[in-house]
Design a protein around this nucleic acid. Structure first.
Lengths: 254, 254
DNA sequence: TAGTGGTCTAGACCACAAG
DNA sequence: TTGTGGTCTAGACCACTAG
């Protein structure tokens, strides 16, 4: 028999939370379920009510309910088995890597992020950068170099390159809001990004900035982000203090 | 106007490839589209036929076509915009991180993987391991230590811990097929995994095994994998030569 | 055999972007 | 205004699991 013998049935008001922006039904249900899991109303291993019953009870169609549930399966919060049912996964949950910046990442985890802008210049750069941005080798780009702190401890050195469209971004603005927020404020929506995570030795100045020895290991992440048109918006080469930061993710069988 | 002015319309036989196992329609269509993108029939930036037209032409319902397309959007191959259309993304594509082993990963990238099994023991281990596996501290577990080579060059030291159910796994078998294949052959299906990617200095023996200096940086990945019941099946602590291996992924706005 | 999720259909209406 | 994708419904049948 399945672990949670009886399915947990939560009231409709709890599952279908009203949302500010009149979000789609499947999102409202998904958020409601997620909140129920986070609050412990649906503890690890608990069995969910079946789809048909839930859709009738909430006056939703079954595809709508399925979509809400599938969202949480993709996030690694639920597990479904045909002929068996849907269960909350066991164990604690790590947040997914998504298309946000380290700045938002730190705030979300309750730490206080801050930034020191080292350098904002507009100049020619090497071909490895222009190639990533899909630009001509002679193009000038905006180069940004920053140190990110969490609770006043340096955790990352961030190097970003942007096409000349963004040449007017100021150091002051970057110190406040983070690059991705600034891009968003300018109406740029990031849709796809490709990234590679690796490791190497810290350079001399990285060692000083991160307050670790020269040649100490750093975690690296190189990312190219594209907007909805498929144009490259940003290329970043970052390195992190591995004792203070790592990339956590949940994988789900496809 | 949109880049590819006229949508690319491919014949139904090309899009709906017959598959061995009579796979679901949405998977067949998704694979067909994926193949068309890989082959260049749908080049980067190309505009796709709209959903309604495609569903009529292929005699499929619109939800089925949508699901196939959505699959490729999630993989980062397509971009959709309301009121505009669907396009193939620009730039080259990196494979998603999924729930497979390094062994499969290397084979897929055309390299020749091989394994040297250092150690297979059944013994008590520290609480950090038993906790990850959800076992009692006094439980004995199977500990496996291996070196993974790609084209005869060492690229990773793999340390895995499994509950006593798998105590009869042999070193010979591991040298041939990789741990995940062996688990699959035993009817164990991995459903969810949580992992953390980081970096640190190599230990003395890791440095020797990977043929890098002691204290050189290594990329690390710790992973706990669960089966469909939510039971922990495997806990792994791995380290990689960062000059030969990194984690690549595509992120898509949610 | 009963109950579950997986697939699929044939519509409908809406929100958004572009000309 | 037109065409696109986004959401939603109300069914149907099938495949798998457990008892």
């Amino acid at each position: 028999m399945l672990e949670g013998e009886q399915p947990v049935v939560l009231p409709a008001e709890q599952l279908l939370q009203p949302m500010a922006q009149a979000a789609p039904l499947w999102i409202r249900l998904s958020r409601g379920l997620e909140a129920a899991i986070a609050s412990g109303a649906l503890p690890p291993g608990a069995r969910l009510e079946n789809e048909v019953s839930m859709s009738e009870r909430l006056s939703l169609s079954r595809p709508t309910v399925r979509r809400a549930i599938q969202e949480l399966v993709d996030k690694g919060l639920l597990v479904r088995r045909r002929g068996v049912g849907t269960q909350v996964v066991h164990g604690s949950v790590a947040r997914q890597i998504d298309l946000t910046s380290l700045y938002d990442d730190l705030k979300r985890s309750g730490r206080v992020p801050s930034t020191r802008v080292l350098d904002v210049t507009f100049a020619r750069v090497g071909p490895e950068v222009t190639e990533q941005l899909g630009l001509d080798q002679t193009s000038r780009v905006l180069k940004i170099r920053r140190v990110r702190f969490a609770d006043s401890v340096p955790i990352a050195v961030l190097e970003n390159y942007l096409p000349d469209t963004f040449a007017d971004i100021t150091a002051e603005r970057l110190a406040e809001v983070g690059l991705y927020q600034e891009l968003h404020a300018r109406g740029v929506t990031l849709r796809v990004a490709r990234q590679r995570i690796g490791a190497r030795r810290a350079s001399v100045d990285e060692g000083l900035l991160l307050d670790i020895g020269r040649g100490a290991p750093v975690l690296t992440m190189d990312r190219t982000a594209y907007d909805a048109d498929g144009a490259a918006v940003e290329y970043g080469r970052h390195c992190y203090r591995p004792d203070l930061y790592g990339f956590e993710m949940t994988l789900v069988e496809r």
